Amino acid sequence: MSQLSQQALQSLFENIKSWGKALGFQHVGVADVDLSIHEEKLQQWLDQGMHGEMQFMAEHGLKRARPAELLPGTLRVISVRMDYLPPDAGFAKTLKQPDLAYISRYALGRDYHKLMRNRLKKLGEQIQEAVKELDFRPFVDSAPVLEHALAEKAGIGWTGKHSLTLSREAGSWFFLGELFINLPLPVDTPQAEGCGSCSACITICPTQAIVAPYKVDARRCISYLTIELKGAIPEEFRPLIGNRIYGCDDCQLICPWNRYGQLTEEADFRARPALKDQPLLILFAWDEATFLKNTEGSAIRRIGFERWQRNIAVALGNAPYDEAIVTALKCAQATATPLVKEHIDWALVQQMAKHQQATVPIRLTQRLVRSIEKGLPRDA
């Protein structure tokens, strides 16, 4: 590759930021590729099995912390932020109504992977027009990349105690993407850590998945349990999932920095009416064709219809007793797969237990009234 002067590299560095923002990225930063300080903690996390069934995390091992091994010749990583918070998010309202389905806000719109990757590719091509010998490769959750560590080095934010990237300007309601390049660009200055003594995300986690600051046990995380886990959800976690049928936002909802969350400018990230604030019974009634139609172009489709039904069955079990829920669960038993049937059976037990709890006080009250009536004088 032809040698670029420091002045030319600085000019290109500034142009890349402008080009990236013109493509719809809210923040563009540049990091070097030295992530060696993360290797020991990454290996410990893997050794402790905290990645659960996510074998792709272990298959590449420490390659995640070594960008140049993923793409030989990589000297810098361009890290980008794209906000996704829809204007009509309505977080608290949905969580407080247990008969409605809560879907993580990042998944309510179009799948971000392809959109961001295409724009990163365009950014690479634009840089290539200025430097013909450029070699680049875009990544959006598509390879073993320590995206939060790179975002931190690129000045986009710091890694919060919930392990997500936090920004002073945007909280954490954003996606990250990376462009690996072979140019020795100047690098950005990391942001100072801003969590301080706050531990709200650790305290609020329904399943206590944040086992220590900056350390998440995926096996306990509702996002993992409802998205990544292919088999049965452990019974100890089912009641804690509540009405969350795809992902969980609790650690973000409680974070003080998210008061600065920025609304998305992307129409593709707007919530789809078929998915937002829908009654659990409506979603449970979908057949596979309806599921595929309503999740076309959505990240939700990746879990498949079986896990979709599994998750909703758990949420129905957690909902207040409703005869309509019991009827729907019983009707679904005949055609359910063994995995889904296991969760339907569990949900029915929960529903009937709530029904019994509700009727016992009524029966006791009726008995008490009869006893009082028997003891009253005839002319009372």
Rank of each mutant, 00 (worst) to 15 (best):
residue 225 L to P: 03
residue 315 A to L: 13
residue 268 D to P: 05
residue 202 I to H: 01
residue 184 P to D: 08
residue 282 I to Q: 14
residue 379 D to E: 14
residue 225 L to V: 05
residue 9 L to Q: 08
residue 208 Q to V: 00
residue 221 C to A: 10
residue 5 S to H: 11
residue 84 Y to N: 00
residue 103 I to K: 02
residue 148 H to C: 13
residue 165 T to P: 08
residue 15 N to D: 14
residue 353 A to E: 14
residue 331 C to E: 12
residue 344 I to N: 02
residue 280 L to Y: 12
residue 334 A to E: 15
residue 173 W to M: 09
residue 196 G to C: 01
residue 315 A to Q: 09
residue 253 L to Y: 13
residue 161 K to V: 03
residue 316 L to F: 02
residue 280 L to G: 05
residue 272 R to Y: 10
residue 373 E to T: 13
residue 50 M to S: 03
residue 308 W to T: 00
residue 257 W to H: 13
residue 220 R to F: 09
residue 41 K to W: 04
residue 365 T to H: 13
residue 98 P to S: 06
residue 69 E to I: 00
residue 294 N to F: 11
residue 298 S to T: 10
residue 318 N to H: 05
residue 231 G to S: 09
residue 179 L to H: 04
residue 301 R to I: 02
residue 87 P to C: 03
residue 355 H to S: 12
residue 336 A to S: 13
residue 76 R to D: 08
residue 179 L to Q: 07
residue 290 T to F: 06
residue 163 S to F: 03
residue 133 E to T: 13
residue 22 A to T: 11
residue 290 T to K: 13
residue 318 N to K: 02
residue 70 L to P: 06
residue 241 I to Y: 07
residue 269 F to S: 08
residue 359 T to W: 06
residue 291 F to R: 04
residue 233 I to K: 00
residue 356 Q to W: 09
residue 163 S to M: 08
residue 290 T to M: 15
residue 56 F to T: 09
residue 174 F to A: 06
residue 210 I to Q: 11
residue 47 D to C: 10
residue 101 A to H: 06
residue 280 L to F: 07
residue 330 K to D: 12
residue 287 D to M: 09
residue 111 D to F: 06
residue 209 A to T: 07
residue 207 T to W: 03
residue 269 F to D: 07
residue 279 P to T: 03
residue 345 D to S: 12
residue 276 K to G: 00
